[in-house]
């Protein structure tokens, strides 16, 4: 019984008007939660001690790691939505993965920028072709390609299904890309590069890191809901404009 109830709830959400009502109720709460978490997280990350090895630059980790985590989670959310689009033809899934692409690109950009700023004092260069940095960079390129595709397709529902296919193909490829980049890296990289994942993380760093990770995650969900709402509104505006034009044409 509970399963069928969950399914009805889920398909209830397919009604965009109901989704808009729910979003309007949830978004302020999520926004407040995000702000509080960011407040606590930022306070913690600036009051804890620096690492003996990396000095105070370890604080960059509190922005860098959550952004990198989100850049991957966002793609997973998009892949789930893509399955929703192709398998269940869920109308909100279309909206969801289209709205998530720019967010994912932005978080990936944060991860890249803070990674470069962390690398400069630690490794002495802005960029190393390290396996992890490189795969995040490829992910960034994939996000940008998807955004470009979304912008180039004008029919929203057909476009959503096409980009869903591409998201899924990309999602299947991500492990292969990751594996091959690691292979390539061990082949070319001199072994002297300092690894960041040295000793296991101390509790002192773990707590601010977790708080910041939650803050970023909630920020993503807030923005995602808002972007989905915008996308629904945008489709309504175009649909109504088209209808108005049709009516005007009939009067003539």
């Amino acid at each position: 019984m509970s399963e069928s109830l969950a399914i009805t709830k889920f398909s209830d959400l397919a009604n965009p008007t109901r989704f808009l009502g729910l979003a309007a109720r949830i978004i302020p709460w999520l926004g407040c939660l995000t702000a509080v978490l960011f407040g606590v997280g930022l306070y913690l990350s600036f009051t804890t001690q620096g690492d003996y090895q990396q000095g105070s630059t370890v604080r960059i980790m509190y922005v860098h790691v959550p952004a990198a985590w989100l850049s991957m989670m966002c793609y997973s959310v998009m892949a789930l939505s893509a399955i929703g689009t192709l398998v269940w033809r869920h109308p909100l899934a279309d909206v969801s993965h289209k709205a998530a692409a720019p967010l994912g690109a932005a978080f990936t950009l944060i991860a890249l920028a803070t990674g470069a700023l962390w690398g400069k004092p630690m490794w002495g260069t802005w960029w190393v072709w390290d396996a992890r940095l490189t795969s995040v960079f490829i992910l960034f390129l994939m996000y940008l390609g998807l955004i470009a595709l979304n912008r180039a397709l004008d029919d929203p529902s057909r476009g959503a299904r096409l980009s869903a296919v591409l998201i899924l193909v990309g999602f299947v490829n991500i492990p292969i890309i990751k594996f091959s980049v690691e292979w390539w890296n061990t082949l070319h990289q001199p072994a002297s590069v300092m690894r960041l994942d040295g000793p296991t993380i101390d509790n002192e760093f773990l707590i601010p890191l977790l708080v910041m990770a939650f803050a970023f995650t909630f920020l993503f969900f807030t923005l995602h809901l808002m972007a989905m709402r915008n996308e629904i509104w945008r489709r309504r505006v175009t649909a109504q404009r088209r209808m108005a034009a049709r009516m005007a044409g009939r009067e003539l």
Binding site: L141, M142, L144, G145, L149, G170, N173
Partner: peptide
């Protein structure tokens, strides 16, 4: 042009193993 942009990131593994 869009085809190339979309396909190139996915083709990286082929390039890596071909060249290596």
């Amino acid at each position: 042009l869009l085809v190339s942009i979309l396909v190139l990131p996915l083709a990286i593994p082929v390039l890596i193993f071909g060249v290596s």
